[in-house]
Design a protein around this nucleic acid. Sequence first.
DNA 1: CTAGCATTCAAACACTTGTTTGATGCGCAT
DNA 2: ATGCGCATCAAACAAGTGTTTGAATGCTAG
Lengths: 206, 206
Amino acid sequence: MINQPFSTKDRILSAAEYLFAKAGFAGASLRQVTSTANVNLAAVNYHFGSKENLINELFKRRLDELTTQRMQALEQVLAAGPPTIEAVLDAFVSPALSLAQDRHGGQSFVRLLARAFAEQDQRLRRFVSDNYGHVLKEFARTLLGLLPALPKEDLYWRLDFISGALTYTMSDFGMIKKPAGLSEEAHRRHAAAQFIRFAAAGLRAR
Amino acid sequence: MINQPFSTKDRILSAAEYLFAKAGFAGASLRQVTSTANVNLAAVNYHFGSKENLINELFKRRLDELTTQRMQALEQVLAAGPPTIEAVLDAFVSPALSLAQDRHGGQSFVRLLARAFAEQDQRLRRFVSDNYGHVLKEFARTLLGLLPALPKEDLYWRLDFISGALTYTMSDFGMIKKPAGLSEEAHRRHAAAQFIRFAAAGLRAR
DNA sequence: CTAGCATTCAAACACTTGTTTGATGCGCAT
DNA sequence: ATGCGCATCAAACAAGTGTTTGAATGCTAG
């Protein structure tokens, strides 16, 4: 089996990502997915087993990428000696924002992530937190060292706020429309800068 | 037609709120709604016309309540002379958190709100932002007066972050589990205090 | 060339979906 | 008592759901 540049599996994943982000997991049918992917209906169950499993693989593909990028960014920051809070936050935020502007469906995935947060479905939440949790813990450990006066409990609250704000911000850049003259790349950098300034101040709150 | 304390309409609304929050608008069927409401299936279309319209009435009922409470809280704060940033934030946050702890389905609604934010469905977003937008603007105006050195654009970014953090915090109190000895009321107050401290510091960031 | 295997396909499966229908019950004013 | 209108009910509707099936491919190794 040679994985062609746009294999059936890939086309299904991309179409599913787009449609699930737009209409929700229950709202988009497999027939819609396979038809926009130009693929036979039965291909989903052949390649993924079930709709449920398709959703899981969808998350795995992106989350693996996101978490490794975050860990790499954190390692780089730590390697350069004692970091600032801003640098640590940047290692957490930038990979997410760059994923959010990725042309190849990343934008859809970010909305999907926001949806997963809003879901009450425990199965999906568990899955996300499994691939997500240890990264958050690593960042928490690092930040705790940089904020020796901050009780651990307070830090966890604030990291929770930051995660929520980031998810929401990414899922659609809110009220703030991109100025016409600005490139997407520049807009993203600007958003990251704004966010980091806000979050760092929040972390330092007495 | 005398509106009994638990009329058919009310029972449908409550059941729908609960189930839609749990499974999404497409994920929960009218049969599930009517069966948990102990009501005939046809009652939904009789009283609300369609599933779509049921969802709208659901949002209207709660959002009207939330926005008026926020505006009242803001007025009260302003009436007592020049306010602090913390007081303004409290007027914004407390009504939401008290709604989130309301026994009569309010908790479900808050999750529903988070879901609406995650939705890409433009119809629903417009509906929410119509009942939501002018309140946010009023708070923005007030805060702008309290932060004379802050560029308007920066404030909008930060309010966006705050809205996101609040929405996701409310929708499920995140990693932070309620300590066993604490009452729900006390836990909410604690959450509100944590949130306001974080958000106020973020707003004041230089 | 051919046997074998992974993939694709149209068709059907049983089931659930939102909505509509027409009959039935109930309460209240005439 | 009678008639009227609102509310509820079981039943059915057409359409759409995820999944399965078995035949038809196409490709590759022997």
